[in-house]
Each structure stands twice: as C-alpha cells, then as structure tokens.
Amino acid sequence: DESNKPILLPNESQSFERSVQLLDQIPSYDTHKIAVLYVGEGQSNSELAILSNEHGSYRYTEFLTGLGRLIELKDCQPDKVYLGGLDVCGEDGQFTYCWHDDIMQAVFHIATLMPTKDVDKHRCDKKRHLGNDFVSIVYNDSGEDFKLGTIKGQFNFVHVIVTPLDYECNLVSLQCRKDMEGLVDTSVAKIVSDRNLPFVARQMALHANMASQVHHSRSNPTDIYPSKWIARLRHIKRLRQRICEEAAYSNPSLPLVHPPSHSKAPAQTPAEPTPGYEVGQRKRLISSVEDFTE
C-alpha cells in the first residue's frame, strides 16, 4: 500500500519547517483550565467582593489541597506544564494547583491565590483569567444561592456549585447557560463527603469543560472538536499529503500518493430520524474511523 510507505522529508523547505513548528504547539495530551472561586458570607451577589477574597475557610483550604498538586509557578516550564496563561514571573501569584493523568493536564485558576492589587480596583487582572475559563468551581460559603452570571465573562458556560453542609458533607450541583443544557445535566445534585469532594468536583468540572469545548467549536462548523492527539494525527497526515504533492510536482515521474478510497458502495440502511441538538453535539466527541485508517 503506497499510502503507508515511509517518505523522504525535504531537506530545505520553509513550509515544512513551519508545519513542524506548528505541530510542536499541539500538545500530545488534552488540556483544561478551571476557575475556582470562594464566596464568603454576604458575597453571593457581589463580583468585586468575591474576586477580592485572599483566603477562605478551613474546609475550603482542605478542598484545594485535594484538587491537585501545589506547584510554584516560577519553577514551571510552560512547554511541559500546562498553566492556561498564568504568568511565571509573579504577575498572577506564586502558587497554583494542577492535576494530570496519562492523557490530560488541568490547571486551576484560583482567585484566592492570585494577588489582590490596590491599583486594580475592579480586579481585572484576576478576571482576565477567571472570566475566560469555560467552567468555574464555586465554593459557596455564603449561606445564600449563587446565580450564574454573578461573575461577568463571555465564556462562563458552567458552574460547579459546592455548598458546604453539616457533618462534613457538601451539596454539589451544576448550573449552565441555556445554550449548554443539551450537553450538561443540571437536574441531579449530589451529597458528597469532604473527603471525596475534590475528586467529584474535579471530575464534574473536567466533563463540563470538555462539553464546553465542543459547544464552543460550533463557531467553526468545519472543524469538529477532536482530542489533542487526534489533532496531531490529522496535522501529520495533512503534512504527509502536502509533501507527496510537492514531490510529485517537482518530479512528475513519481506517483502521487493519495489516501486509500473505498470503491465499494456502502450498504443501504433504513433512514433514521434526524438526531436532535443534544445527540449531534455528543457525537462530535467521537472520532471518525477515517482518522485511523487513511
């Protein structure tokens, strides 16, 4: 099969070098950035008060330690540790928490760990991170309901609301924008112990962030949302095809390698009803078989 044979790379090609550099910018793992907010007593309706908090309760602090690993920003190499735009020179604080497994990295933009500057009256330095995160974990210690939209931002799609209760338990629920209701189930609340709260809140936030990324990708319907490693695979396959075309153009005697095509017509299947918005969006999480067989 010609399409699977190794090909020689061009010795000097600026377009090839640019493509390789672009490939280096696509990590081999999925990345997520999640905002974390603490809401104190009497702050449920005040964005400024929430963003001005420099610490929270003892249970909130224990919750943070379970979310991930504490890292010092100045020691991080952005090409190895995903920071979601946090500055490593102290502009966004000294520490944050991050978490990773074999296929993804997540960083938490924690408002109480970011510096509260006197010259920044409206807390814009914090909002440029927190307001651009799709998902926020809100530790609501106010005793009042927290409403979506209290923290203004164009991309605040989903809130994971943590409400501490007695007996070391917590109520965990989801809020989302109306255009996200087909992807996020907000109907079920959970009672979770303090011990298990970081794991549950983190998983709910990661799932909500993946759904938000799919939702946000609708602005470019021709580019369905893939995982990062599938995006790398697609980029490599496009690069291979372009090299083959350039080689055939410079030397017409060489065969032009095309991806294999299936001449056999697909079997006719009964027509199915058109899937609704929710089903269609969830299918976009699934990769096409052509990603692996071309």
Score class of each variant (00 low, 15 high):
T65P: 02
Q14W: 06
D1Q: 10
F157L: 14
N156I: 08
E12V: 08
T269E: 11
L64P: 00
G182V: 07
D185E: 05
I151F: 08
S287Y: 04
P115L: 02
D223L: 07
S136C: 11
L8C: 15
L73Q: 15
N209P: 01
C176M: 03
P6V: 07
C98L: 12
K117E: 10
R238E: 15
T293L: 05
H262N: 14
V135G: 00
A231C: 10
N196R: 03
I34L: 03
G153L: 08
T293E: 07
V188L: 11
F16A: 08
I50Q: 02
C98Q: 12
R242H: 14
E2L: 12
K127A: 12
D194M: 00
E278G: 15
Q241R: 07
V184C: 10
L113D: 04
S44F: 03
D179T: 04
V214N: 03
C169M: 04
V119R: 10
V81C: 11
G68H: 04
M204Y: 03
A201Q: 01
S57E: 01
Y60T: 00
N209F: 02
D30A: 04
P164Y: 00
S142Q: 01
S227L: 13
V107W: 08
R59A: 00
D102S: 07
G85D: 12
L70R: 07
D102P: 13
Y139D: 00
D179K: 03
S227T: 13
S219C: 12
E2T: 08
L183A: 05
S19F: 14
P226V: 06
Q77M: 12
I103A: 05
Q281G: 13
P270A: 12
Q105P: 03
E54C: 05
S219N: 13
N209W: 01
P6C: 08
A247H: 13
G90L: 05
Q21N: 09
F16K: 04
L22N: 08
V36W: 00
T96F: 04
V160K: 01
H258R: 08
L64V: 05
G153D: 08
N45F: 03
L183Y: 15
I230G: 11
Q105C: 11
G68L: 04
Y58A: 10
N140F: 00
K152L: 07
I7T: 08
A231N: 10
Q77V: 11
R202I: 03
K74W: 04
T65I: 06
L183C: 13
H262Y: 08
G131E: 15
D24V: 01
H109Y: 05
H216S: 06
L130P: 03
K33W: 04
L197K: 00
E12H: 06
L183Q: 04
D166E: 11
N170Y: 01
N45R: 11
M210F: 06
L70M: 10
Q77C: 14
L197T: 09
Q175E: 06
G143M: 03
E72I: 05
V81M: 12
N53C: 02
S44N: 08
A265R: 09
M180T: 02
R59N: 00
S44L: 03
S250I: 08
K33N: 15
A247W: 08
R234P: 15
P259A: 11
V135C: 04
R282H: 12
T163F: 02
G56T: 02
F95V: 05
T31F: 11
H32F: 07
E91R: 15
P115F: 03
G182Q: 10
P198T: 02
L239T: 06
E168M: 05
N132E: 13
I110R: 03
